[in-house]
Simulated assay, not measured.
Amino acid sequence: MAESASKRLKTDGGITIGTHNGHFHADEALAVYMLRQLPTYADAALVRTRDPALLATCHTVVDVGGEYDAAANRYDHHQRTFATTFPGRPTKLSSAGLVYLHFGRSLVAQKLQKPEDSDEVGLLWNKIYESFVEALDAHDNGISAYDAKGLEAAGLEKRFSEGGFTLGAMVGRLNPNWNDPVPSDPQEAQAAEDERFVAASARIGEEFTRDLEYYAQAWLPAREIVRQAYQKRLEYDPEGRIMVLEGQSVPWKDHLYTLEEQEGTDKKVLYVLYAEKPVPDAKWRIQAVPVTKDSFQSRKPLPEPWRGARDEQLDGITGIPGGVFIHASGFIGGNKTFEGAKAMAVKALTL
């Protein structure tokens, strides 16, 4: 394989990224993708090999070579002594995390068109690691999201299969099957394998880019809107348990939890009100705040007698006109007007 890799190596002085050949994983697939989004690496060639002599000719090497040295552009994590983590996080890095640690600020700054040392870049640099990259670091290093001994002690078991469709599995399934035909010519076989890797890198990269674009273009602009709504919450309830998003709904959960944590208050927001559409006659939603961002458990679900009711039936139960529906689980409901939704929230606080 070393010979065919050598033939693929550019000799015109351009930058070459090196990674290992053979079975590929999500971490090096994302590492290569992230590098190639930066101007320095935009036209970089790729060499997949384990030959130390060939790797030594590469400008940057990820996930192979047994060396972590950012000054030399070497980003492997398989050394016995390797224990590097992202700032403030406990998970040992993979090649994806290493590349993101050193180049992630540049990627975020490039997207936001702001200096790398700006507060916004720092905020998103941390957020995207926690929301996306850390899962790949954990997957590649064999770190479970839950403590296995703790789960066993609690007697907890999965109720159903999740299909195994994790970010890591999404890349892994693009490897060839054990019984797929392989070209007899080593160079052709390596070229076919490299083609699969390039497709896998683009696939995981597409998801990374969607995450980056969401947080840059939707999540970050919502921060100020939620902050203003949080500051006005006492206008709707003396204990600040109702928050109203004026204009239209925005991604609010992360920002709300952060604001509450920063304030250190015991008086948590229980219901968030927002219009379905940014038009004057829009219907309004009332949503119970979940215990955590991804939890199906609410801090205070809408009252049980209301759940599953709609329209006139709901009006009769609540005594509030304009009801549209209450979800069977009590996590969300609706009313035709803001005043109606506010009345539902105020009444729900007492039940």
Rank of each mutant, 00 (worst) to 15 (best):
R105A: 10
S106P: 01
S106H: 13
V108M: 06
A109T: 02
A109H: 00
A109S: 12
Q110F: 10
Q110K: 12
L112R: 03
E116C: 00
D117W: 08
D117P: 05
S118Q: 11
E120I: 10
V121I: 05
V121E: 00
G122D: 03
G122S: 03
G122P: 05
L124T: 02
N126W: 09
K127N: 11
K127T: 13
I128N: 08
Y129Q: 07
S131L: 06
F132Q: 00
V133H: 00
E134Q: 13
A135M: 12
L136K: 00
D137E: 04
A138M: 06
A138K: 04
H139N: 13
H139R: 03
D140K: 03
N141M: 02
S144C: 13
A145H: 14
Y146P: 01
A148T: 14
A148V: 13
K149D: 15
K149W: 08
G150W: 01
G150L: 10
E152Q: 13
G155C: 02
G155N: 04
L156Y: 11
K158M: 10
R159P: 03
R159C: 07
R159F: 07
F160W: 11
S161F: 07
S161V: 04
G163V: 02
F165V: 15
G168W: 06
G168S: 08
G168L: 01
G172L: 07
L174Q: 14
L174C: 05
L174V: 01
N175L: 00
N175Y: 03
N177G: 15
N179L: 14
N179Y: 14
V182M: 12
D185G: 11
D185P: 08
